[in-house]
Amino acid sequence: MPDQIPMVEYLVLGDSPHLEANECTNCGARFFDRRNACASCSGREFTKAAIPTEGEVRAFTIVTPFMPGTDPYVPAVVDCGGTSVRANIVNTPPDPEHVTLGMKVKLTTFSIGADTTGTEAINYGFEPAN
């Protein structure tokens, strides 16, 4: 099996892939990016918080790409147990019959390709839970 790395640093791979937020130890605000301080309380200490891998679609859109021949994609906001996550909805046709507000989804991971050393980058998305 080739070496794998997560596409973004807040994706944790392994036996049970999940997302990991920087959680402010003072106010509990969660962030997925590298932090200088907390946007909510200006606190400077953070701890890692594992995000539930199941959630509900709170908003989505279906973007028609510029590039001819490329498929539409489905950006969404997924509410994972009270923490909002940004991702695409995958493994279902990109149309409003198959993607709906409030639908239950679960995290999935997939390769976006390998570099010249053979290392695969792994991205995440959410697919229908049922």
């Binding site: 640093e9 790409p65 950006p75 695409n88 980058a121 995440y124």
Partner: peptide
Amino acid sequence: RYGAVSGLEGKLGTDMMPGVFAQV
């Protein structure tokens, strides 16, 4: 700031205005 090895657009949501405001 996400330590990404690839551009995020289309892979993890969208920053393009039509898609952002569609979600709004």
